[in-house]
Design a protein around this nucleic acid. Sequence first.
DNA 1: TTGAAAGCGCTAACAC
DNA 2: GTGTTAGCGCTTTCAA
Lengths: 337, 337
Amino acid sequence: MTRPSDVHHTLTLRDVSEASGVSEMTVSRVLRNRGDVSPATRERVLEAARTLGYVPNKIAGALASQRVNLVGVVIPSLSNMVFPEVMTGISSVLDGTGLQPVVGVTNYLPDREESVIYEMLSWRPSGMIVAGLEHTDAARAMLGRAGIPIVEIMDIDGVPVNHAVGISHHRAGRQMGEAIIAAGYRRIAFLGTQMPNDHRARKRLEGFEEALAKAGLSLVDREYYSGGSALLKGREMTAAVLSRSPETDFLYYSNDMIGAGGLLYCLSEGLDVPGRIGLAGFNGVELLDGLPRKLATMDACRLEIGRKAAEIIAGPAMEGATVELLPKLERGDTIRG
Amino acid sequence: MTRPSDVHHTLTLRDVSEASGVSEMTVSRVLRNRGDVSPATRERVLEAARTLGYVPNKIAGALASQRVNLVGVVIPSLSNMVFPEVMTGISSVLDGTGLQPVVGVTNYLPDREESVIYEMLSWRPSGMIVAGLEHTDAARAMLGRAGIPIVEIMDIDGVPVNHAVGISHHRAGRQMGEAIIAAGYRRIAFLGTQMPNDHRARKRLEGFEEALAKAGLSLVDREYYSGGSALLKGREMTAAVLSRSPETDFLYYSNDMIGAGGLLYCLSEGLDVPGRIGLAGFNGVELLDGLPRKLATMDACRLEIGRKAAEIIAGPAMEGATVELLPKLERGDTIRG
DNA sequence: TTGAAAGCGCTAACAC
DNA sequence: GTGTTAGCGCTTTCAA
């Protein structure tokens, strides 16, 4: 006997081959719907595989065929509301193609990102989708050498390794700043989460301050927090800013969740929104639809970013390209005018 | 030459071996920190690997060693708020062990779940964590035969394939029902999302109705919705129930998000909460901390479920076991008494 | 401490 | 339409 008396061993093609009296090769063909197999043998093989409960070994298959139907997706966080929607966009495109997304989470830590990318590349995926343009040198080098399509998503303010799909956060910040100034607000504060490695939030703020500067203005206050419930933090930060700088007439938040918290706070304080004070967030999260008043925001095009990135990976090979999407400013009910 | 003039081929151990003048075997040892290698050769190998930018091929490694450091995690949704926290629990335990979680999403579709499980098993992971106890027969069979630890999470009301870690949703529903009745509410409505395959929500409702029945009560109204912003749906459903059944004095929601929407609606309508009407949700999501009033809820122990499940996978092999966690009822400000 | 040989379970390429 | 052969890039095992 080739295999003595193991009570429980994982099934191989060979087992199916023996059970069906057909060569391993033919079994392999049937199981992959490749090449011509007579309906009769086909049925016999399928039957044998089914009754045995055979599950193919993709490791061996991948090694032999040099093909892996996996797409690595590297994102900073799952609890951000933003990334699940990107994933939805990715899945919706990949679903038809036989490619499978595999998610890795970095918690906004560059070193962690580097190791997640390394781990993923070591499985030789068909492509990689990575959030952001800022990576360690080693990570950039690995991605550049991988010989597969790489798509950096969310952001286009920088130099991509290969492809990029996203929006200009710098420009988004500037546009919001201009809209706020045009609406007549002058004493503007910024409230954000303390995240040195959230480059997109940083770029938005830079663009925003640039717009203020052009109008001869600068921020009257700024407040940072980290950790905890974003909604609650938004309340607390807003309370802090308004007590410290009561003259503030606009609150610009780095994301919608803390913005929503701030909005709930302002309303509960009976402040006149958007008359006495205006507010704006960023992302366009679905949650906003359920608030008593609609927070001004900018849609980050998350679904579309996911779709476009997946299309690049799933489509025919192409030169590196940058796809810029244009976020729409949604004024909601919290900017006057 | 073994390899003529390919401009760009993926590096192999052999390349590192040639570059460092050491056998492939020794290179392999160095790269895995296995066995004794002299510091000198070690340095030479590391240097060569670094300058070449070698990334090991885990596919080949896994095939040869019959070991895969992956743990499959199969969950119904990423946008549910609940699962990211389970993932956090899983990662926090796995991080130390060299095991990596790989996430698959089923969108609450049994067939989709079956195929996700099949795909994952075909990569021969070291363990699987699957949400829920309800699966297709084929999926159960595959999991049972896989020869690896399987942990079904979130729910324990049923028969697990192998291990289970979770809470009893039936009991959770019953407890909430009892607390509401004890607080004196009598005209109780249920508001949930329309999800035939959300078995946990179903079991909670069953337990809840059981408690009502014991007190000689039954639901005065029920309302289901699907899709869209949960917060907004919560508002709309609540408005619908209160206009259709104005005598209702308690609203039991199948999750906190729609409950939060309902709470915001009641407050904006100027209803006396919890005097005139009480509310309760389920899950204990962080978001609730930021609301103007704290919604009553039950903590689903998500973090702990993730941790315990990961510990079972990462720990020494053991007999199948069920771990029941006990959710805490948090009365918040929306149940009187 | 290092190396050589064999093979993991599958598929590409070619024969029949 | 089906089978045979030779690897895929590693690690295991054993020898030196």
